[in-house]
Design a protein around this nucleic acid. Sequence first.
DNA 1: CATATATTTGACCAATTGGTTAAACTATTT
DNA 2: AAATAGTTTAACCAATTGGTCAAATATATG
Lengths: 209, 209
Amino acid sequence: MTKADKQTEEKIFDAATKIFEEKGLAAARMQDIANRAKINKALLHYYFRSKEKLFMAVFDKLADKIFKKFSGIFEEDMPFEEKIRYFFKEHMKFLQKNPKLPMFILAEVNRNPELLDKFLSKINISNIKAKISDDVSTSLPEEAIPHLMVSIVSLSVFPIAAKPILKGILQEAGIDYNQFIKERMEVAPEFILSALKQYNVESKNRPEQ
Amino acid sequence: MTKADKQTEEKIFDAATKIFEEKGLAAARMQDIANRAKINKALLHYYFRSKEKLFMAVFDKLADKIFKKFSGIFEEDMPFEEKIRYFFKEHMKFLQKNPKLPMFILAEVNRNPELLDKFLSKINISNIKAKISDDVSTSLPEEAIPHLMVSIVSLSVFPIAAKPILKGILQEAGIDYNQFIKERMEVAPEFILSALKQYNVESKNRPEQ
DNA sequence: CATATATTTGACCAATTGGTTAAACTATTT
DNA sequence: AAATAGTTTAACCAATTGGTCAAATATATG
């Protein structure tokens, strides 16, 4: 593997990433990828034997990317409230830089169940759950934790995944999408924390529940 | 247009809906649709001249369907808290019956910006916003309403749109997806209401904000 | 019943698409 | 500098796919 080799492989991989993210596996054209990488189509098959192999390489890398960022944040050593705020800030900043990423993963997994296994093998949910569990065990019952986690992910991922639609709707209301997302990085964690605080208050008022 | 005609057109339309929802425009095959409808492929083109026309007809109907259900709920005449609970129950019950619907709309709009206009023309956001505004204007500042709306949609739509992934993750934790969603119909609205109540408490303590 | 009209089909076509191959070119090794 | 191995290309191929067409069949109409 020479220097030129690495460059070419990277050029191809980057081009493939862009095209696959944009169009998805089925609509992506090998020729388009070749054009974007400014190389011959046959060279694609020289480096990555088939469209599927190339796609798998891209999917693998992107799945890794999104999850590394995602889980890493919860590893941080800070108080829970701060962690929630930090998570939304970091995670959404990351997603804003890679706005096509969530939809790509969701759509492709939706259409090809085999990818699910590949994706799940990368993530270690119980680890994250344990981390959160430690943080909130005094204030939240064990069964509520998965719901909290899903709420956190929903509130952070959905507004990015649905970007085109949301952007269109906000436009009609005279609101700038990017500004809205920026606000969201602050609003969403406060929303979560408010809900949890309320839960605390209620459970303290009615400890028998 | 005879009786047989209607039946055939419907058969084709239903088959197309299933295939498009499952695979998306690019991966859907006219032959598969014909097979599913148990008719000849040429007959597809007799009723719907091209793949794109057929797709547009399906997309149109589905976009209509999801939005009719969505907005209709907020028209109901009941107190705000009840409305939120009613919304999650009805909307998520509907989505559970049509689990592929959200991803279909999101993915296709994502890939073809032209569809956005078609979709937006169907919805009347300001109408819904006005309804919510009436309900919460005393307790929530105007600027917070779009965020509340996005939170509501995120919490209800995302867990359905991400069904395959979420199902896989829950499975690893020994939780049944359908049971989880059922819980979510109750948990999510309480989550929202708790967050809002907290907001009220805070704004009453600090009315100068 | 015969004619016109609408529906359905099998056979076919042109274009697209993923993939191959052999030859040309470049860099490395001896 | 000759041989070897790695890289890139143009030309080509087979399969798939959306779409067409003329003939056949069913249905309605006079």
